[in-house]
Nucleic acid binder design. Structure first.
Lengths: 211, 211, 211, 211
DNA sequence: CATGAATGAGCGTTCATTCAT
DNA sequence: AATGAATGAACGCTCATTCAT
């Protein structure tokens, strides 16, 4: 859907540049911020329109519905994420541990770069997962999960990671603890993504106990 | 609050049990389940009433508002939690590591016993934290945080836990990863609270790397 | 209706005195006060019940509906008033001016004795006058009007009152200005009914202009 | 307030008239009529909308609440009234009696021109006077009272009016009897405002008694 | 007599959406 | 592109009333 629309957008604007597309992106940015901050249900189309300096009816020139905005934001976000994670997994000549390092780092970088989309996904994916129109959210999520699980399993197989660990449980633990960071993370607020990744991995790899 | 009311109920109703109180509790249970499942905003009072087999107006015989139901659920849940956590921290002749074991175990037990209240809190506390009427949610949360942070700090001081770890970051990591379990945990579905606690602590204490 | 009910009441209580009747009167007093103070529509049966120390459902043991309470209050009030006004008009060997004096005095005395019923009537008669169930309010009011108009006309005929005055307009003026007193009159607050009557009549008879 | 808005309206809409403002005014007129006829509490927003040929929700495009409609009606009415009364009081080279003549005449003209606003004020001011949001009603009322009281007192001081009269009582009498006219006054129904004023003043000045 | 749980209709209000201009 | 008036469904809530206990 994101592709369809942005295709239509650029078709309309073939000569004049991507002015329409810019406006779309701007509006989506506003929507993402509000959805992330207040929750999708609590955010009204009037909130979004007001923030953009137009009337709510005018939003419908750009998007067919409030849900379509949510859809576009999530589809774009999850798509990009999967592309990057897959890229990391596919890297050749790289150990599973190094891949895990990269995955974790990229997750924290994503939180830094797209905090609203991340927060939005965290907040709403639960409610969305039972709606037919958002089937793809489950699909993307599942594919992302698979990447991480394969890397963890490869680490166990290679003997780098402890064999007595349930990778399913471990992965859920890691995932939740990494992505939940978005709730308190503030760009330029004491930690940068690399530091967070380092710290997280330091505990993960070495454990809490002193030796 | 629930205790107060059920106390009043049984005083009035010494012989026949606390029938009125039971109804309240029943309705609160339904509300908690729906709030947790669909989100507070998406749950209508008609949903709750229908589930209870009455009309929406009849709910107001028991509760003054939809918000009052949310309030009672959260207050009760957070109150109980703080009492238990504080109890664990205050235990004498117990090492910080043993206290942490107990805290983690109790968290997983709480997820098992009160999954709806936990999920509800996870979902809504963010939105609630800016509302004056739910100030107490922040207060309780903060006090719970303090218990865990003191135990972690004591562990560092005693030399049991690594000194090079930022306890704030560590605590957030642990907290998010433990409580997020509620999203997928199913009573009687392969794991019990003790297993989850053991597994979690095993990774936490020993780290992921094989030796 | 008032007669019917109070008849039924005393029949029920032939042996045991008028205990039931007292309770009725007490409840009607509370209702009258609240109707007068807040308006009929703004007063809920819960307000009345709460003021009486019972639950709203229990009111229906005494009265068949909220409207029945209003009905009984108004019927009683207007009935008594008409009896007294008629009595005054019928007095023999009394001049029209003296009758007018008496009517005015009795009006102020009524305001003193039954402020709630008066205020209630003032407030609600307009809305009631178009409802079939309250036809009798118009009837009573009209009969009261007729008494006053006959006395004023007799005064003109006797030569005591100016002949160039439109008695209809005059009566409405007097009526509104007398009964509106209830809005600010406070028993024991500086004026008593006789003073108010005197003052009112002094201006009415003598005019405002100095001579 | 109406003036402000219609000003804004015509600025936006210089050529085509104040269409938006007209709609507001039209809706306010309908509301005023219904509030006056049935009472504010008994009038539903659905009544108003139906009368205007729209749905109740559509009213909220023009007004933020039912109360806001009441507010705008009353504020506009009381504001205008105070302006006119003050204007009359301030007139130079005019005796107190002549000022009183003008005040009375203007009151009857107001009843003729704005019967709904007058009736609405008469009916609801009592209930409103205890609500913080309608504080201004008391303020305006009190200022209007003061104008009349000063004119009456000046009349006494100048020797034109009887000195043995309690102006407070007199004013309340006059006020209630004048404004209550709205309950039965019908434009084009036998009396015009000037006749009513003349008749009222004739009795007031000359008294009822024949000489 | 009174309780207390429940009804059912209706209320003021919100909000995503439509559409003529 | 945008406006602004309107829709229609739904929402949280109120309240007079009923009735089994």
């Amino acid at each position: 859907m994101a592709a369809t629309r942005s295709g239509a957008g650029s078709a309309r604007n073939a000569a004049g540049g991507t002015r329409g597309s810019d406006r779309r992106a701007e509006l989506l940015g506003i929507a993402a911020r509000l959805f992330a901050t207040q929750g999708y249900a609590r955010t009204t189309v009037r909130d979004i329109a007001e923030d953009a300096g137009i009337l709510s009816g005018s939003l419908y020139h750009h998007f067919s519905s409030k849900e379509a905005m949510l859809d576009e934001i999530l589809r774009d976000f999850l798509g990009r994420l999967l592309v990057r994670f897959t890229e990391i997994e596919k890297r050749e000549g790289v150990t599973p541990k190094e891949k895990l390092d990269e995955l974790v780092l990229h997750a924290f970088v994503t939180i830094h770069d797209s905090p609203h989309a991340v927060a939005l996904y965290q907040k709403e994916s639960g409610a969305l997962s039972h709606q037919a129109a958002f089937e793809y959210v489950n699909k993307y999520s599942h594919e992302n999960d698979e990447v991480w699980l394969r890397v963890l399993a490869a680490g166990q197989e290679s003997g780098a990671f402890r064999a007595d660990i349930d990778v399913d449980l471990l992965y859920r633990s890691m995932r939740d603890s990494i992505w939940a960071t978005v709730r308190w993370y503030q760009p330029g607020g004491g930690y940068d993504p690399a530091e967070l990744a380092d710290h997280f991995l330091s505990i993960l790899y070495g454990g809490l106990l002193a030796r």
